[in-house]
Computed example of a mutant assay.
Amino acid sequence: MHIIIDYTDAIHRRQVIALWETVFGYEDSHNQPGLAIDKKLAVPDGLFFVAVQGDTVVGSVLAGYDGHRGWLYAVAVHPLHRKQGLGKALVHFAEQALTARGCLKINLQLIAGNASVAFYEALGYAVEPRVSMGKKLSQNLP
């Protein structure tokens, strides 16, 4: 059985990095797990959660809130723990945290072709007619 708790850097960092490398296989320097964790911890908003089974991190979710919209990032479940409702539990946990802050709408982005679209649709999310754009700020990249 898993529980969802606040991320604690000293306890969870190594395991979250390994989880994200397994699940996401990040290649871009701005998505390096250690860097993403450091940047999130620099904004102490209490919106970084892990699912643990015993002492082992088996899932994660990062959320963000700008005062109007919320965001979900890094929803990850270790492959050995999938199909048990853990992803759904992580999303609901983050949604509750955002709702408690007064969030009006939650957004998330998926890489084109990501098979998770059906998962999120089953949780009430819909593909919206938007164009997602990004700009890397080279002066801040490792």
Results as ranks from 00 to 15, higher is better:
Leu19Trp: 15
Val77Ser: 03
Val50His: 02
Gln84Trp: 14
Val75Arg: 01
Val43Pro: 00
Val61Thr: 04
Leu110Ile: 02
Leu35Tyr: 04
His30Tyr: 13
Ala63Arg: 12
His68Asp: 13
Leu35Asp: 12
Tyr26Leu: 14
Ala51His: 06
Leu62Trp: 08
Arg130Gln: 15
Leu108Pro: 09
Lys105Asn: 13
Ala76Lys: 07
Gly34Tyr: 10
Gly134Pro: 10
Leu72Lys: 00
Lys39Cys: 04
Gln84Phe: 14
Ser29Met: 09
Gln139Tyr: 15
Gly54Thr: 11
Ala100Leu: 06
His12Thr: 05
Val131Pro: 07
Gly64Phe: 12
His78Thr: 05
Tyr65Met: 02
Ala94Asp: 05
Asp66Pro: 14
His12Asn: 04
Ile17Tyr: 11
Thr99Gly: 10
Glu95Asn: 06
Val75Met: 02
Asp45Ala: 03
Phe49Gln: 00
His2Asp: 14
Gln139Cys: 05
Ala89Cys: 08
Val127His: 06
Val16Cys: 10
Gly70Gln: 06
Asn140Ser: 09
Ala36Ile: 14
Phe24Asn: 08
Val117Ala: 07
Ser116His: 10
Lys39Ser: 03
Asn107Met: 10
Asp9Glu: 11
Ala94Ile: 03
Gly67Lys: 13
Asp55Ala: 06
Phe48Ser: 00
Val50Asn: 03
Trp20Phe: 09
Ala74Trp: 12
Glu95Phe: 02
Tyr26Phe: 14
Arg69Tyr: 11
His92Ala: 01
Thr99Met: 12
Gly59Lys: 05
Arg69Gln: 07
Tyr65Ile: 02
Lys105Phe: 13
Thr22Gly: 06
Asp9Gln: 12
Ala115Pro: 15
Ala10Val: 09
Val91His: 01
Ala115Met: 12
Glu27Pro: 01
Ala51Asp: 08
Val50Tyr: 01
Val52Lys: 13
Cys103Phe: 10
Ser60Thr: 09
Lys135Met: 14
Thr8Ile: 13
His81Val: 06
His68Met: 07
Arg130Ile: 15
Cys103Gly: 14
Gly59Met: 05
Thr8Ala: 01
Leu80Phe: 08
Gln96Ile: 06
Ala89Thr: 04
Gly46Asp: 00
Asn114Glu: 11
Asn140Gly: 08
Phe24Pro: 06
Ser132Thr: 10
Ile11Trp: 15
Leu98Tyr: 06
Thr56Ile: 12
Val16Tyr: 05
Gln109Cys: 12
Ala122Gly: 09
Pro79Trp: 01
Ala94Pro: 07
Thr22Ala: 02
Asn107Arg: 07
Leu86Gln: 06
Phe119Cys: 04
Ala74Glu: 12
Lys136Tyr: 15
Arg130Ser: 14
Tyr65Ala: 00
Tyr125Glu: 03
Gly124Ile: 00
Phe49Glu: 00
Ala36Lys: 10
Arg14Gly: 13
Glu21Asn: 08
Lys83Gln: 13
Val91Ile: 01
Val127Cys: 07
Val117Ser: 05
Gln15Pro: 00
Ala51Gln: 09
Gln96Asp: 13
Asn140Cys: 09
Leu110Gln: 04
Gly25Ala: 08
Leu41Asn: 00
Tyr125Gln: 00
Ile111Thr: 11
His81Gly: 03
Lys105His: 14
Leu80Trp: 05
Val16Met: 09
His78Met: 02
Ala89Leu: 05
Ser60His: 03
Ala63Gly: 09
